[in-house]
Amino acid sequence: MSLLEFDEVDKYFGETHVLKDVDLDVEEGEVCVIIGPSGSGKSTLLRCANRLEEIQDGEIRLEGQSISAADADINRLRQRIGMVFQSFNLFPHKTARENVTLAPTKVKGLKKGDAERRADELLDRVGLRAQSNSYPNQLSGGQQQRVAIARALAMDPHVMLFDEVTSALDPELVGEVLDVMHDLAEEGMTMLVVTHEMGFAREVGDRIVLMADGQVVEDSPPEVFFENPKTDRGKQFLSKLL
């Protein structure tokens, strides 16, 4: 059993068929990087993985439990799935520390003091201990995104989903966020990463999954994908990058 399994997943937005029979298994400790042209369904696939989007057919399972079933206890399952968004989505009315402690105290029932100690540890880990009392609009984009990562980690997720988390950042701020993700991967976190950062994909990814038109068209280790892709779509995609 894989940690996260997509089993013949179909997703429609109205008439548009955005995910076509997608099969994908993410193993524990694996960093799976999803790349592909815009509109290929990468982000949608990620959002289906914690049911921010509903699927119309197939099944998605986390550690063997269905996420997509009508009777799934989604609030409980989501605690095991961390998500980081392109637009950060930090809570603007809460300080960095409060952003991190909110869910552990309200959802897991952690005591305030314990949650704050843990939040400070996590903020320290993403290099923002000094900013714990700052509000999001007092932080740079890169800092906000690192707080968002700490916020997701505070629930002790078993898998982390990263949805184009550096796409909204100024170029000089991209590195600090990728560094945090790099560390996380080295610590053995299971990660499903949608990104346009090919350097990161190559260096940190265990697997490169290329999506096009709602389908997985290639699934290769990075050294294979970037040196000698198995499929024509892979070759075509790489040629456009250069």
Partner: peptide, 17 residues
């Protein structure tokens, strides 16, 4: 922004929370 509720839900919070 819709992303606020999505972020809350993705952390395991209910709609009411």
């Amino acid at each position: 922004p819709e992303g606020q509720m999505e972020a809350a839900r993705s952390l395991g919070m209910s709609y009411v929370q």
